[in-house]
């Protein structure tokens, strides 16, 4: 281990927070969908991928200014989430959960191959936006402005989301439906609509994550969502799937693990993507329900 300067530590800290925040936005989608449908939505990584393409085409083909393009891309991704739920999951509402899981794997492959057909497998370059990608130097740490925006945007979105889930009527309906569809219907809750809203929110957050991901790692291809998707799923499980705060904590933890292991053990940097999986195994062995595991208070 060579000498690690405090500048390197700070640099890594900034990188870890940025990466963790990006993971968090995608991990929340997994955890929300799991919370309400008990479904691991394997198509979530592909929703992430599609929103990068949406943003790409709104900038390059529709020639929109970046802020409009990103806004439209986020909206389209939200709609895509609703369509996927309507077409692939709602017809299976009364089916065993394994059918839903298989359906989600099907949607995942469908979207990947659709992307190959529609957008070709050739790598595309995510449109650069100077105000995010300019590099600034703070206390000897050189970071893209993005590294400041990402955690801020994530924090704001998470706070808004927690408010929505815990303090609003639709949030109450989401929490009720996540426990008991039938009784929720007896309360007059339109469970299908609540589920659609959940998918929409999850997809919108994934879209924000994907766009910022594209600004940081500007390569787009049809399989670009697979690995981030898998890692964010792991982040959600580490945190305790079904729990929004858990997903954020798991995602930040994963970001720190990835960045700091590479910092302290540069020789392992080739195995960077494997850390998430090792972390998953270790944490599940110690805490099977995740770090913030769902509280079970159910007296019958």
């Amino acid at each position: 281990m060579s000498a690690i300067t405090s500048d390197m530590l700070l640099q890594s800290l900034a990188n870890a927070i940025t990466l963790g925040s990006l993971y968090a936005l995608v991990a929340i989608g997994y955890t929300m969908v799991y919370g309400i449908l008990r479904l691991i939505n394997f198509a979530h990584g592909e929703i992430f991928m599609m929103s990068m393409y949406f943003a790409f085409y709104f900038v390059t083909a529709a020639m929109l200014p970046w802020y409009l393009a990103f806004l439209f891309a986020i909206a389209c991704t939200g709609i895509l989430g609703i369509i996927i739920e309507r077409a692939a999951y709602r017809p299976l509402r009364e089916a065993p959960r394994i059918s839903l899981l298989i359906s989600s794997i099907g949607v995942s492959y469908l979207l990947q191959n659709l992307a190959v057909v529609l957008f070709s497998g050739i790598q595309k370059q995510f449109p650069p936006v100077a105000m995010f990608q300019d590099v600034i130097t703070i206390a000897n740490v050189r970071i893209q402005k993005l590294s400041i925006y990402v955690p801020l945007i994530t924090a704001v979105l998470v706070i808004v989301l927690l408010y929505l889930v815990n303090k609003t009527k639709i949030g109450m309906a989401m929490r009720a439906s996540s426990k008991d569809f039938e009784t929720s219907r007896l309360m007059g809750i339109n469970v299908n609509r609540v589920i659609a809203v959940t998918f929409c929110i999850g997809s919108v957050l994934a879209a924000v994550g994907a766009i910022m991901w594209g600004l940081k790692y500007p390569k787009i291809e049809p399989y670009v969502g697979t690995l981030p998707g898998l890692k964010c799923f792991i982040a959600a499980v580490i945190g305790g799937i079904g729990n929004i705060k858990g997903a954020v904590i798991g995602a930040l933890l994963l970001g720190f693990i990835e960045i700091f292991i590479v910092l302290f053990f540069p020789a392992l940097s080739g195995y960077k993507d494997a850390f998430a999986f090792v972390a998953l195994i270790v944490i599940l062995l110690v805490r099977p329900s995740g770090l913030v595991g769902e509280k079970i208070a159910n007296k019958v």
Binding site: R175, T183, L186, A297
Partner: peptide, 29 residues
């Protein structure tokens, strides 16, 4: 349900991780 019919289901089926007050509010959804 919206016509004014309500059912107190068998086994009570209250929402375990909503507070008591939230359970009441969800009844008035």
């Amino acid at each position: 349900v919206s016509k004014g019919i309500t059912l107190v289901p068998e086994g009570r089926r209250i929402f375990p991780d909503l507070t008591v007050l939230e359970n009441l509010k969800v009844g008035a959804y």
